[in-house]
């Protein structure tokens, strides 16, 4: 495992910690897109189904997968229960049907194999690349975002951005390549790029 891969995974963990910390300390979920959070849960559940049969292959991967699914479900639980009064659906209006539909079409057209787990894996990769859009859309609508929310989005974006040099390293040193993940990862990073730019300049 190279430094970029570890950095990416660490960044992903940090983003989750920031999000949960923000909700618990402010006792609210203001500024957090519920739709994006639901998309992430769908992403993790469809991608990490392989926990059922690859659990023993890598303790690191399996542990991370459980953390990602668990924390994502917990975030949604908090938004639906404890902090429900602070959630305003009127500003969280992005049409996620298109994101889910588009990802499903791409997954069905170009999976590595036409098996349930491969199609779901591919679906999760495409969906992850666009899952932040409801959150960015919400940020744009409300204008000023809390600093903590921008830190969350930055850490989450850095995760997939760091996977790009990781793929380059793996291509050069391990002859490893994963076209679906790479193309979707680049799209994902481009979607964040405008946000990254604003984050750096503010």
């Amino acid at each position: 495992m190279n430094i970029f891969r570890i950095g990416g995974d660490l960044s992903h963990l940090i983003s989750i910690f920031i999000l949960l910390h923000k909700m618990r300390t402010s006792k609210s979920c203001i500024g957090i897109s519920f739709k994006s959070q639901v998309l992430y849960l769908i992403v993790y559940v469809t991608r990490y189904l392989d926990l059922l049969w690859t659990f023993q292959h890598s303790t690191y991967n399996s542990l991370m997968k459980i953390i990602f699914i668990g924390s994502s479900a917990y975030t949604i639980y908090l938004m639906l229960n404890d902090f429900k009064p602070t959630h305003d659906p009127n500003i969280d209006t992005f049409k996620v049907e298109y994101l889910i539909g588009g990802s499903a079409i791409l997954a069905l057209l170009f999976p590595y194999k036409w098996t349930t787990s491969e199609v779901l894996w591919s679906f999760s990769i495409w969906l992850e690349s666009v899952a932040i859009l409801p959150q960015l859309f919400m940020l744009q609508r409300t204008g000023e975002a809390e600093t903590i929310t921008t830190h969350y989005i930055f850490a989450l974006g850095a995760y997939r951005a760091l996977y790009i040099p990781n793929w380059l390293c793996r291509y050069l040193f391990e002859n490893f390549t994963d076209p679906i993940a790479i193309i979707a990862g680049i799209i994902q990073t481009i979607l964040y790029s405008d946000f990254f730019y604003i984050y750096y300049t503010k």
């Binding site: 992903h12 991967n61 990602f68 996977y163 994963d178």
Partner: peptide, 10 residues
């Protein structure tokens, strides 16, 4: 078709 390699990334 070759077996799909194990996904070793997150």
């Amino acid at each position: 078709v070759a077996a799909t390699p194990l996904k070793d990334e997150l």
